[in-house]
Every structure is written in structure tokens, then in C-alpha cells.
């Protein structure tokens, strides 16, 4: 299986460990990744609001780069995933806009025909690998991990348009955690928002929201968290010191990227998966006896 792979901005900067882990895990899963190095940012939440045309061009360009390779597109960031899904849907709905975008892309010799299949890494595991094969590939069941899944927003909402299950009924991460040998827990924050998208101008929202989520995970017995989104990870892990100061209590909750959790179960070493790059240290002793 071969994918055009779009890491996004976070996985090439603050969460570079996610990019490294994804490449290693993909190799273990038998996925061949063609990284789209010439792709730009998808515009986060900001560009789509203040410059819709610029937003659509950048995202359709990413889809066109994948289509040129004749490959489905794999993403590892929730917000990037929703952005390309939105751009793809609008491209198909609005033929005037589609023509305008393709006219601009023609300067680069690019053209989008609306054919690219978009899949987040989490969905690839279910739709391209399958549960049975994943179970076979697990070499190190992660029995020491009691894990709180943190879905994030943009691969579970908005409702209806992309046929997401009602976010409160999402089970994909917990089911995966079980396949990998972990014990998933239930807690109030699992499909809530981390507040990342206001953090660059005011961190207080993210600190307050995410503090409550980490605390709920801890109270319900989690010794680690896992998220499929590097933006959520930035708040859960990168802001945890500030969250602790705000709450006046130590949380010390290690947070893994989804490919790191999968990689640990597939037998890759914590060093290969760069868990040492996190702000809150993950204790390899919880998975390696």
C-alpha cells in the first residue's frame, strides 16, 4: 500500500517526533509513504476564515499533488484532515470555484480532477490494514498502559457532512488501544476540545480546557494519553507545565502521538519513536519489562 503523505506544519516543527514515528511505523505496517515536501500549510483555522479563496487553493493544491502521484492522501493532523476534506467537498460542489482554482494551479502545471481519497492515519489502520492484521503485527502488547484516548475535534466533527459518527459515540481509538494490548478508560474529556486554535493569541482558553481533560483522565485511572492530532498534543504535552501552574497541582501525564502508541506495540523502541522529545517524559518501563 502506497500513500501520498502530508505531515503538515506541526509534525515538521514542534512535533517533529510525530513525523519520525510515522515513517517508522508505516515501514513496520508495510505502508510506503511518498512525502509531499512541496505542499504548503493547509491554513489551520485562520486562513479559511479570513481568506477563503487562498485557503481553497492551498488545499486543492495538496490534493492535486497527491492526484499527480495517483495515490490516496494520508494525513496525521486532525485540522489538516478537515481542511482538505472541506476543500475537496467544496471543489466538487462549486464548479465555478473549481475552474478558478485549476486556472491558478495551471501556472505550476498542476490540475485537480477531484479524485483524491483522503484518509487520516487512524482511518488507514482500519481501512487499509485491518484489525486482524494489526493484531498479528502486535509484538509487544502494551499491557502496562491504561490509556485515555483524546480524539480532538476535527476528525470527529462537524456532524453529518462527512458522515462522522456522533463524536460522543466515537470508539475508534479505544478499540485500537485494546488491539494494541492497552486498557482504555472512559472519561469526560475524550471528545472535547483542547483549545489550540486560540492559543497563539491567548493561551488561557487552552490551559483551562485541557487542564480539566487531563485531570479527568488522571482521576479515571489513566497513566498515559494518546491523541491522533499534533495540535492537541502541543497543548496536552507542551502546555502541561503551565496547566499545572494554573491548577496548582502536579499532573505529570505523558501524552503519546497515535503512531508512537502503535509503534511501541509493533515492537519499535521508544528511542526510534522519539518519545524522549516530549515535555512530559514517558516512562519506557511502563511498556518494556
Amino acid at each position: 500500500m502506497k500513500f501520498a503523505y502530508y505531515p503538515g506544519c506541526s509534525a515538521r516543527s514542534t512535533c517533529a517526533e510525530l513525523n519520525e514515528a510515522t515513517h517508522r511505523v508505516a515501514a513496520s505496517l508495510g505502508l510506503e509513504l511518498v512525502q509531499l515536501d512541496t505542499a504548503t500549510c493547509t491554513g489551520a483555522r485562520e486562513l479559511r476564515a479570513i481568506d477563503p479563496l487562498g485557503f481553497y487553493i492551498l488545499n486543492v493544491r495538496i490534493l492535486a499533488l497527491a492526484e499527480r502521484e495517483r495515490l490516496p492522501l494520508m494525513t496525521i493532523c486532525n485540522t489538516c484532515t478537515l481542511n482538505v476534506l472541506d476543500a475537496h467537498a467544496t471543489f466538487l460542489e462549486d464548479s465555478d470555484l473549481a475552474a478558478r482554482i485549476n486556472a491558478r494551479l495551471a501556472d505550476e502545471g498542476l490540475h485537480y480532477g477531484g479524485q483524491t481519497r483522503i484518509s487520516h492515519f487512524l482511518w488507514v489502520l482500519y481501512e487499509d490494514i485491518g484489525e486482524a492484521r494489526l493484531r498479528m503485527l502486535v509484538k509487544r502488547p502494551l499491557t502496562g498502559l491504561t490509556v485515555a484516548a483524546f480524539y480532538g475535534c476535527h476528525i470527529t466533527r462537524p456532524p453529518q457532512r462527512y458522515k462522522f459518527v456522533d463524536s460522543r459515540n466515537s470508539i475508534a481509538l479505544e478499540r485500537l488501544a485494546e488491539i494494541l494490548g492497552c486498557r482504555p478508560i472512559d472519561y469526560s474529556g475524550r471528545t472535547e476540545c483542547c483549545g489550540f486554535h486560540t492559543a497563539a493569541h491567548d493561551e488561557r482558553i487552552a490551559i483551562k480546557l485541557t487542564g480539566a481533560h487531563i485531570q479527568a483522565a488522571k482521576v479515571n485511572g489513566a497513566n498515559s494519553m494518546v491523541t491522533p492530532c499534533p495540535l492537541c498534543h502541543t497543548v496536552l504535552d507542551g502546555f502541561q507545565r503551565e496547566i499545572e501552574q494554573d491548577m496548582g497541582q502536579k499532573l505529570g501525564m505523558p501524552v503519546l502521538h497515535l503512531p508512537q502508541l502503535v509503534g511501541l506495540a509493533l515492537g519499535l523502541s521508544p528511542e526510534e519513536l522519539r518519545v524522549d522529545r516530549h515535555m512530559v517524559q514517558f516512562d519506557p518501563g511502563t511498556v518494556i519489562s
Partner: peptide, 21 residues
């Protein structure tokens, strides 16, 4: 029967299990 889901099905996991219709 293959347990590999078809494209789009992974984002619906939970609909049946949680009686979400």
C-alpha cells in the same frame, strides 16, 4: 469475511456499537 473497512467506514465506528441511530 475481511475485517478491513471500506473507505469512510472508520469514521463511523461506534454508530452500531453505541446504538447511534
Amino acid at each position: 469475511v475481511s475485517d478491513v473497512l471500506t473507505p469512510g467506514e472508520a469514521r463511523q465506528l461506534g454508530r452500531l456499537e453505541r446504538h447511534d441511530t
